[in-house]
Design a protein around this nucleic acid. Structure first.
Length: 395
DNA sequence: CAATCGTGGGC
DNA sequence: TGCCCAAGATT
């Protein structure tokens, strides 16, 4: 049974521990709600050390809600490049526009209003309300669920959405009067530095005296969390098309669709090999043969109307997302003579009677410099860096 | 509820 | 290496 004594002890000792000393993080410089908001979005599923340089750059580029609201979307994505979960960036900007239109550019000191912003869920709403406005709202993230599961010996699966609801009520009941911001941050700070997922450091823990998991010797088996499914493999063919004439020194890239995986990011053209599921060997075709390369150049011809001619294998690269594992085989290619006379894609495509008005991807020729302007997923940054590193040595 | 949505670091 | 993990939201 959870005693009031154990709860009061926990709240007071944890708050005192935090106030005795905590990390000097850039978003703790002041309580500007915009800074708190941006930091909380960046910190979703992302480590503090990773976020810090992104946060500094982002705040330098978009210092205010208005600056963010008025920025070109692609610039915001570029600033987010490499941080992952890119819908966070697009939702954050959508939220900034809401604040401009609905609240005159001022982030409201109101839980329902904040929770109504794009990209702001239960955790982030609680974090903003407590840290920026010191309102007594719980902010339950993975740290908090782990810390409280151990301290109170809770055996609910923290991977289940329902579990968070229960822990929110508990967390709310622990908030000391007038200290919501510091207390919520203390909970997360403890989870990040002391009550860590693997081998928690119980001896320096400020609340270990009444930690039920520790007292039962069960701190390493809590919290209970079901494993995520492993990412499914996808074998893909990609191609670096080398331009000629006015596009000499450039390669062909395209922009991804507005929704879904890596939405609106730029990438090398590629296609899924639907019948390969157990490795490249299963395809039964060596990478040096032209057969695989031709299937991706044919796809590209259909999409662009260009005549694309494979020239060789470039590299194999793989990339793991949360739910998909991409195995990418990358070829090089150049342009045949027939269609290069056309000035634009639609004219070229129309000439082949393949023009469709609906959903044609946007293609563009870019050089090394343009890569620094457009947002690319990590995988293609790696491939293109390698490509241009080699290309610069040739000339 | 379960799936979708990135990336880098630690062991 | 392979696996787990990290200040979650959306559908």
């Amino acid at each position: 049974m959870t005693t009031q004594i154990a709860k009061t002890y926990f709240s007071e000792e944890l708050l005192a521990w935090y106030r005795r000393g905590n990390r000097d993080l850039p978003w703790r410089k002041n309580r500007d709600p915009y800074r708190i908001w941006v930091s909380e979005i960046m910190l979703q599923q992302t480590r503090v050390d990773t976020v810090i340089p992104y946060f500094e750059r982002f705040m330098a580029s978009f210092p205010t809600v208005q600056a963010l609201a008025e920025a070109p979307e692609e610039e915001v994505l570029k600033c987010w490049e490499g941080l992952g979960y890119y819908s966070r960036a697009r939702n954050l900007q959508a939220g900034a526009k809401m604040v401009m239109e609905l609240y005159n550019g001022i982030i409201p000191d109101n839980k329902d209003a904040v929770a109504g912003l794009k990209g702001v869920g239960p955790y982030t709403a609680g974090a903003i309300m407590s840290i920026a406005f010191n309102r007594p709202e719980p902010a339950v993230d993975g740290n908090v669920m782990r810390v409280l599961s151990r301290y109170f010996c809770l055996e609910d699966d923290i991977a289940k959405p329902k579990t968070r609801i229960g822990i929110e009520k508990l967390a709310a009941s622990l908030i000391p009067e007038g200290a919501a911001g510091d207390f919520n941050q203390a909970l997360m700070e403890l989870g990040a530095l002391v009550c860590t997922p693997k081998s928690p450091s119980c001896l320096p823990c400020p609340v270990m005296e009444h930690c039920e998991a520790r007292l039962a010797g069960r701190e390493s088996e809590l919290p209970i969390k079901t494993k995520a499914k492993p990412p499914r493999p996808e074998y893909r063919l990609s191609v670096i098309v080398e331009g000629s004439g006015e596009h000499a020194g450039k390669v062909l890239v395209r922009r991804r669709p507005d929704t879904g995986l890596l939405a609106q990011m730029w990438e090398l053209p590629h296609m899924l090999l639907e019948d390969v599921k157990d490795g490249w060997e299963q395809a039964g075709i060596p990478k040096e043969s032209g057969a695989l390369a031709e299937s991706v150049t044919r796809m590209l011809e259909g999409e662009t109307g260009l005549l694309v001619r494979p020239t060789g294998w470039f590299t194999d690269a793989d990339h793991v997302f949360s739910h998909i594992h991409w195995y990418m085989r990358v070829y090089t290619a150049d342009l045949g003579e027939v269609y290069t006379a056309f000035q634009d894609w639609s004219a070229a495509a129309e000439s082949r009677e393949q023009y469709e008005t609906a959903e044609r991807a946007e293609y563009r020729w870019i050089g090394r410099e343009e890569m620094d302007k457009l947002p690319f997923p990590n995988l293609f940054i790696r491939i293109l860096r390698e490509y241009w590193r080699g290309a610069s040595h040739d000339e």
